[in-house]
Design a protein around this nucleic acid. Sequence first.
DNA 1: CAGGTGTACTAGGTCATATAATACAGTTAG
DNA 2: CTAACTGTATTATATGACCTAGTACACCTG
Lengths: 131, 131
Amino acid sequence: MFELDLRSRAPIYEQLAEKVKELIIHNVLKPDQQLPAVRVLAGELTINPNTIQKAYRELENRGYIYSVPGKGSFVKPAETGINVIRLQDLEKELEKIVTEMLYLGVRPQEIITRIKRQLSKSADKGGPHHD
Amino acid sequence: MFELDLRSRAPIYEQLAEKVKELIIHNVLKPDQQLPAVRVLAGELTINPNTIQKAYRELENRGYIYSVPGKGSFVKPAETGINVIRLQDLEKELEKIVTEMLYLGVRPQEIITRIKRQLSKSADKGGPHHD
DNA sequence: CAGGTGTACTAGGTCATATAATACAGTTAG
DNA sequence: CTAACTGTATTATATGACCTAGTACACCTG
């Protein structure tokens, strides 16, 4: 279910958290859907349960999942508590990327075009689910 | 000249490389301009020269600077060898950010607006210098 | 030659990461 | 209730990246 690079400088728990986050964002993992149990996923990925646990804890701290002792870990619906700080971080990252693209010679019009293409591509898959 | 966070999980040499890269991208450091010598910068930042060297090496590998033994390290002009791989990475990052912004409830029109604002802000400072 | 530059190497310390082995408490199906 | 599942916590240990310290060599320039 997940492909991890054990040689990467990025920690395993961070890679895993990133993968799960992407599945949530792309709506592959639906709200309130149960995630694989830490021991099960540990067995499948041949990774220590503690490492899985660390990834899940990180995802919980960032507001993407919630865990219930005895029951399991589940995808947290996006509506509850929109993360303003995370949006500011994304804004800064976006700024960096656009600036570097300009530096590398990409024309402004080209940047706009690509983003619009991306927007129409993501619209149907993982768009927001406002009530 | 540089502000580093010694407590951050991000390595010092990575932080430094990122800072220098941003100065280059924003055209604060001009093409072929000499960078501070490794020992000098090490003294100013109270950091081991080896760490500075590591940051410079990384910048050289990524194509942002070039070093000449005996002379110094200098800003590499952007035109020579446009990094296609780097552009693909930026494209992927851009895709991730846009997707996550949508997930967090930002409207597509709002994303376009912010990027256009960013484009006009960067245009005068660090735009490409085509011959 | 003297003093600057980049670069390379070894040695040692620190800390995050990952593993291993237990352990405990809550939930749930039988 | 019992068994088997869940998340969570703890301790111990090993590994590797990171950083420092010190030294050394080759190159360039006034």
